[in-house]
Design a protein around this nucleic acid. Structure first.
Lengths: 219, 219
DNA sequence: AGTTCCATGTCGCGG
DNA sequence: CCGCGACGTGGAACT
């Protein structure tokens, strides 16, 4: 990794045009070649950047970075206050835990938290337009397609609508109704779901982990 | 801005749990307090971070960063290879040019470039599922809902379809037809639009700026 | 390579 | 402050 702190102007010419006036900034070049220009504030996102793969040409006081799509990033340097470079080796990478899949797993284990009497038939039930998160049967023996999201927004309702369209053509399942499940369902998504006769439920992730815990299995 | 290159492990506990094993990384603390841990690769996104506002506690070889939501980021340091800090001053900020809003503004001023005889009724016309970019009236007095995108893709057609669904229930407007406008409309979006009897038009941004320029207002 | 969908998305605007 | 949608979204999984 190479790090500079320098006065510079920056111009990006690609999907849009952007210009940064002269100021002191941090310029970071990673081992994979990606370039990022950071101001001293404004979250982790750089003001400007160019991802790998790209080609960097160093001229006299100016860098021109070009990517295969023909986008360019031009850095024109004033005073360079500081510069260093170092080898950091390979990174062992990030271990994550607790995203949407986990929520789906928990709900698959305890479908009744979504609706009393609900029983799981299959997870990731395939349709021509992608797999339905959970396919269930309700207390009356009817089929229910469940779409699980961490945050329930309009896209999710659209997705579920597409699944239902196909599932309802399968005479062994039809009629299939939809159930939209998320930690939070946004108002516009509620409106759209209700308008399409799709049910929606909010579930609490922490509570669900509690219900799922070995403790309660004792009872 | 404060910069360290150090061996460290990192743990994030918040919306999810994430762990980084010991390795050499760049730790950046900006003037607004936000913290980012970068590996030597993998685009501009840091492996782990904590945005401002937050509270940083430095213990012996360990930093604990907490934000108001109760999320924590814990950095445990091994060897520190390098450390520096510097004042970079206020950043004058980014100037952008060419985004969707500008395109919408230009089209609102000259609706006839989308279709001869088209007249603007309102920008950002509200519906229960979000505002329609432009609501217009055509040469025959019919209502036209216009969705403007920089790049015309399938989700834009979906969006317009949802608007039309609701607008057509308003008897003062119905029937309302759709018009999908973008600098470039992708083949799949064209197909879907045509399938739903939604019109699509490609407009040239530079040309539009020309039409809109004071120069031509002289004629 | 193209498409779909998630993300600790982030960011900015309007109510 | 919340709601909502755009983003140079980026990135991963899958076709």
């Amino acid at each position: 990794m190479r790090i500079l702190v320098a006065d510079c102007t920056v111009d990006y010419d690609g999907r849009l045009n952007a210009h940064l006036p002269m100021a002191t900034r941090l310029v970071m070049v990673k081992a994979d070649g990606c370039v990022a220009i950071h101001a001293d504030g404004g979250a982790y996102k750089p003001l400007n950047w160019m991802n790998a793969p790209n080609h960097l040409v160093e001229e006299d006081g100016r860098w021109i970075v070009t990517n295969p799509k023909g986008e360019t990033l031009t850095i024109t340097f004033g005073e360079v206050h500081f510069e260093t470079a170092m080898d950091m080796g390979e990174d062992p990478g990030l271990q994550k835990d607790g995203v949407e899949l986990e929520l789906q797993r928990l709900l698959a284990e305890t479908p009744e938290v979504m609706e009393p009497g609900l029983v799981l038939i299959r997870r990731e039930f395939p349709t021509p337009v992608g797999p339905v998160d959970l396919l269930c049967r309700d207390a009356d023996g009817g089929s229910v397609a469940v779409e699980v999201k961490r945050r329930g927004e309009i896209d999710g309702v659209e997705q579920l609508t597409r699944y239902l369209e196909f599932l309802n053509r399968d005479e062994r399942l039809a009629p299939v109704r939809g159930l939209f499940v998320a930690q939070m369902v946004k108002p516009q998504a509620r409106t759209l779901a209700e308008d399409r006769n799709i049910g929606w439920v909010e579930v609490d992730y922490d509570e669900l982990r509690g219900v799922d815990s070995p403790m309660l299995k004792l009872f």
